[in-house]
């Protein structure tokens, strides 16, 4: 975690063709029950005012140029937060003709066009739970530890030879 993430994170909500379930959960986080504003998180109306982009949806081909414009408009250092299964790995749309299939493909396109993104965070869930978003905010601000790690397990055979 770098130093600048300790200040209040202002976020811009970027829908790239999602089904609106994740968007509703983002609004749910801002209600008094979960209250993301106690961490200083605030929705802003323009990417030019934002520190982070909350990306939902699998990035449709129609939305791609607009997404790139929005990322370019965000001042450095910029964070990209991929929310929901669609955004992280393409979700159920990972191999359809009309989407590029999530943030990993988007990062390749951004690299080609030499647009830099300083931090990328991934939040899986379909849709993401409000608690998962709170946990991610805690992770970005360094309040909680990362709990997930990659695992390689070897299947155990019973007979030998």
């Amino acid at each position: 975690m770098s130093k600048f993430l300790k200040k209040s994170i202002w976020v811009f909500h970027l829908n790239t063709g999602s089904c609106n379930a994740c968007d509703i959960e983002i609004l749910d986080v801002l209600t008094p029950y979960f209250d993301a504003e106690r961490f200083g998180v605030k929705l802003v109306a323009s990417p030019r005012h934002a520190d982070a982009l909350l990306m939902t949806g699998p990035v449709t081909l129609e939305a791609l140029p607009k997404v790139i414009n929005a990322i370019e408009a965000t001042p450095r250092p910029r964070i990209l937060i991929a929310m929901g299964s669609c955004s992280v790995g393409g979700g159920i749309w990972h191999d359809t003709y009309s989407t590029i299939g999530g943030v990993r493909e988007l990062l390749k396109i951004l690299k080609e066009r030499e647009i830099e993104v300083d931090h990328v965070y991934y939040i899986p869930g379909c849709p993401i739970r409000p608690e998962a978003i709170i946990y991610a905010i805690g992770l970005i601000k360094g309040l909680v530890e990362k709990k997930i790690s990659s695992k390689v397990k070897k299947a155990v055979r019973r007979t030998s030879g």
Partner: peptide, 16 residues
């Protein structure tokens, strides 16, 4: 549900 990470390779689980 606490699955947020900053490294996408954390999200893989493999059985060999």
């Amino acid at each position: 549900f606490e699955l947020a990470t900053n490294d996408v390779s954390d999200l893989y689980e493999v059985v060999v």
